[in-house]
Computed example of a mutant assay.
Amino acid sequence: MNQQEMTDRIATGQGFIAALDQSGGSTPKALRGYGIEDGAWNGDDEMFALIHEMRSRIIESPCFGNGKVLGAILFEKTMDGTSGGKPVPDRLKERGIVPFLKVDKGLEDEANGVQLMKPMPDLESLLARARDKGVFGTKMRSVIKANDTAGIKAVVRQQFAEGARILAMGLMPILEPEYGIKSPDRAEGEKVLLEAIMEGLDALPEGQQVMLKLSIPAEAGLYRPAIEHPAVLRVVALSGGYSTEEACAELAKNPGMIASFSRGLLQDLRATQSDEEFDATLGAAIDRIHAASVA
């Protein structure tokens, strides 16, 4: 797929984006969920080798390339690895799946009810490498924990500022200001978030587009204005701690949003499953998430 084909696939495809981007801090938890306990590896290299084996098993599963998965978000080490004997971005595109890269370096300490992203001084060099490997876009995550207007606006300003750096390098940014689903004031705070997002979208230069990755809103249909904005290529939803069933049920209430799930996709996969069991389990999750994304 060339750049235009990837753009069209994401813009109009009937499916969802898989999140396979667990980083150093979240990898042990992901491995435990997969049935591999902490003592099974010695050092980061062995840990990342194990998580890469899991991701490659997912990428090579027959159901992963059945057309229902539009894209996949990768961790940097996954982008640099291989699957099916080929570089991962090339292998994904061969299977009709658009590759994205997680680029944030984690979160700052909480202030004003939010966690901003840590600085990314080497972002351009990472983006150049990703672009050379055929990656289409990026994803970066901030977290909102409370309805604090100053904090929410700071998160959105930072997301759009970093998005401008990504656009300048010829890649498509997914802006992810995640609103914690357990926040008691989420319904009101998400309205503040939407207002800040719309201001950022309106300020984009004509012809530029971004993607948004948002928590499934407490008020169904809240993000419709962003979905319909000409500066938005696609709005995707994170599972945010919901189970697969919960996330799919909530997502189906929001036409125009498609899934970009991690836990909601991977929760029932285990290292001890046979290939047949693994493929059947993954296929069932893909079917459920696809159905919610096209509802």
Rank of each mutant, 00 (worst) to 15 (best):
E199T: 14
G39S: 12
H229V: 07
M1A: 02
S26P: 07
N2H: 03
Q4D: 14
D202H: 12
K93N: 10
E250N: 05
E250D: 06
M1Y: 09
V135Y: 13
S23W: 11
Y34G: 07
S239F: 05
G151R: 14
G43V: 11
E219D: 15
M120V: 08
D80G: 01
T138L: 05
I36R: 08
M211E: 00
A164F: 10
G264N: 03
A259C: 06
C63M: 00
P184G: 07
K133C: 01
T272L: 02
L123N: 01
L269S: 11
H290P: 04
K139R: 09
D8F: 10
P217W: 03
D185H: 05
A164W: 13
E228P: 09
L266D: 04
G43K: 13
G189F: 00
C248F: 07
L116E: 05
M211N: 08
M169K: 15
G67D: 09
P87H: 12
E5Y: 10
Q159S: 15
A285N: 12
G163C: 10
G71K: 06
Q158P: 07
R95P: 10
I286A: 01
R91A: 03
T281A: 03
V192N: 01
P173S: 09
R95Q: 12
A271H: 07
L251F: 07
M54S: 03
Y34L: 12
E108K: 15
R186W: 00
D202N: 15
I51E: 11
A111E: 11
E219F: 05
E219V: 10
A237P: 02
E60A: 08
K86S: 08
P89M: 01
A247R: 11
A231Y: 02
V294H: 06
L123H: 10
G39N: 13
G283V: 02
A161E: 15
A218S: 15
E219Y: 08
I10F: 03
A161R: 14
W41A: 12
H52Y: 04
S293M: 08
Y242I: 00
M6E: 00
T272A: 13
Q208E: 13
L282R: 11
L101F: 00
G170M: 11
T281M: 12
L50S: 13
G65S: 08
L251M: 06
E206S: 14
E110G: 01
I36C: 10
D38S: 12
M47V: 03
S183C: 04
V69C: 01
H290V: 02
H229D: 06
K118Q: 15
L123W: 09
E46D: 14
R91D: 06
A259F: 04
M172Q: 09
N112K: 15
I216T: 10
E206Y: 11
A18W: 06
E46P: 08
P87V: 14
S274H: 15
L107M: 13
D275A: 02
Q159D: 14
I58Q: 04
M79Y: 05
E108R: 14
A203V: 03
V103Y: 00
E206L: 04
E190Y: 02
L107A: 01
L201G: 07
K139P: 02
G85Y: 00
E195M: 08
Q273H: 07
Y179S: 07
G283H: 02
G170R: 14
A72W: 02
D80H: 13
A130P: 08
E108S: 13
F16P: 03
M6T: 06
S125D: 14
K191N: 11
D109Y: 06
D275F: 07
P255H: 12
N66I: 01
D109G: 10
